[in-house]
Design a protein around this nucleic acid. Sequence first.
DNA 1: AAGGGCCGCAACCGCGATGTG
DNA 2: ACACATCGCGGTTGCGGCCCT
Length: 559
Amino acid sequence: MSRTTTDSEDGLLSKDQIESPLMDESNGGIGNGGIVLKKGPWTSAEDAILVEYVKKHGEGNWNAVQKHSGLFRCGKSCRLRWANHLRPNLKKGAFTPEEERLIVELHAKMGNKWARMAAHLPGRTDNEIKNYWNTRIKRRQRAGLPLYPPEVCLQALQESQQGQSSGALNGTDTAHHDSLQTNSYEIPDVVFDSLKGNSCVLPYVPELPDISASGMLMKGLGSSPYCGFMPPTMHRQKRPRESTALFPTSGGSYKDGFPQFDQFENDADRVARSYGLSFPHDPDPTTKSPLSFGVIQGSHSLSNGNSSASKPTCGAVKLELPSLQYPETDLGSWSTSPPPPLLESIDNFIQSPPPVGAFESDCASPRNSGLLDALLYEAKTLGSTKNHSTDKSSNSSSVTPGEVADSSTLNVCETEWEEYGDPISPLGHSATSLFSECTPISASGSSLEEVPPAETLTGSNVKPEPADHAWTPEEQKEASPPLDYTRPDALLGSDWLEPSTGFKDQSIMNDAIASLLGEDLATDYKHMASGTSTSNQGWGLGSCPWNNMPAVCQMTDLP
DNA sequence: AAGGGCCGCAACCGCGATGTG
DNA sequence: ACACATCGCGGTTGCGGCCCT
C-alpha cells in the first residue's frame, strides 16, 4: 500500500511529476524561508533523491536534506521516510507469526513503546509495529477478547520472577543495555507515573498521562466498547464473521477457542509456587486461578523482569502472506482441540503460547505499561479496598478457604469494581476491561457471558460478542471448576481479607507488592509494610516512602 | 454492478528529550 | 543557565483498497 507506488507507479512518474517531480503545489506547506515543502505521499523521485543523499552524507541532519538535495520535504519527513521505507535491511511484508507473538509479548511488557519494540524486531519499524498493534487492538476490541494471551501473561510472570531471582536488578545481567538502563529506576518511575496525582486513596488514578497503555485504554480499550466486549460501533457486517472466528463453536464450546486453565495450570502453578505467593492455601489444584492471580502478581514484578540478555528471536522468516491471511497458523494453540477456523492470524496467534524464552527481556520499561498498567490499576484498586473491605470480606467468608489465596487479589478488585462501578473511573474504562486484557477467557468458556461487570458496571449497552454456544447447566457444571476464576465476582469468596486484621496473609501481599516494586524498593516497602502490619494503619501519605503512592502504600491499611 | 463502510497503511503532527553554542 | 536546533517517539489522520450488502 505504498503511496509512492500509487503516485508514481513504481517510478513511472506522471506528467506532472516529471515536470515537477519534487513539488506538488497542491500538497505542500510553507517551509523554511518560505519554501513550500511538500507533504503527503512520497514519489519515487523523491525517494531516489533521499536515498542518494543518505548514501552521500549518511543519516542524520535531516533538515540539511531539504537544503542540499533540492528535496522539498522537511527533515522530519525525510527521516521518517528513510527510517520507515528506504533504509536498507527493512523487512517488508506481513509480520510472521513469530514476529506477531513477539510483538504481543513485548507489548505486554513495554506497553506502547514502539521504538523499543522495533529494536527487537530487526527490519521492522516502530510505525509498522504500531499500526499492527493498533489494528490488532481494534480487532480484539470488536471481538471482546483480552489483549494478551494468557501465556503471555504467564510468561511475563515467569520471566519477571526469574529476573528477580536472578538478581537482574543488581545489574548482573550486563548483556542488555535496557536492563541496565532501566533497572534502577523503572519501577519507581512506572509506579510514580501511574500514581502521580493520586494524592488520596482512590480506586482510580485521576491521570495516567505517562503510561501509554493508559492512553490506549482511554482512547480505545478504555472506551466502554472495549470493556463491554462488544463495541456498539461494531460493524454489523463484521460481527458474524469475527464472532465465528474468535468464538468458534465448531467444537461445541469456547473451550475450543480459548485456553483452559488446566492447560496452563502447570505453568501457572509452577510460577505461582515459585513466586512464593502462589496458592499455598489452596488444597485443591482445580481451584487455581493461575491467570488471574498470576497476572496480577506477575505483573507486579514485570518491570523487574530484566533477567537476561536481549536475544531477539526475530529470526523471523519473511512471509509474503499478509499477516491476516495465514490459512493455518497453528502455533500450538492453547487449546488441545483442533485449531478453530480463524480468519485472522493474530487470533490464531493469540491462541498460541509463546515459546519459552521466545525473547529475553529487557522489556521492563520506565514507562512500562501494557500488563503493568493493568497490574498498577489493580494495585490501585487493591489499595482502595481498605475502605470497604468489611462487608465484602464478610460476604466472602462463605467461600471455602481453599479458594482464598487464589482469588484474593481478584476478589479485592472485583469488590472495588462492584463498589465503585466503572463510571467513576477517570480512565474512562472499566476496570474489568483492563482485567480482561490479561485475564483469559473462562475455563468454562462462559466468561463472555459471565463477564457482565464491563457491561453492567460501565452502564454501556455494549454486548459481548455473540456467543454461539449456549451453555447448559450441565455443561457449566462440568466445565466450570468450583470457582470460576475468570469471573471476578466469583472470586469474591475470599477470606483473604479479614475484617479485623486486614489481609489475612499480609506477608503474602507484602511480598507481592515488593515484587511489584522491585528489589530497590522492596526492602523499603517490606519494612514499611511490616511496620504497619501490626497496626493495620498502612502508610499515610506522609509516611509513604515514595510520594504519590497512596494506592500502593495503603494497601495494608485495612480496617 | 454499484455504493457504502471499514480496514490497513503511510504520513503527518505535537511534544518531549537531547545536543550544541 | 538559557535558547535554539535537531532528533525521536507516540498518537492521529487521510486515503486507497477491499469487503459486504
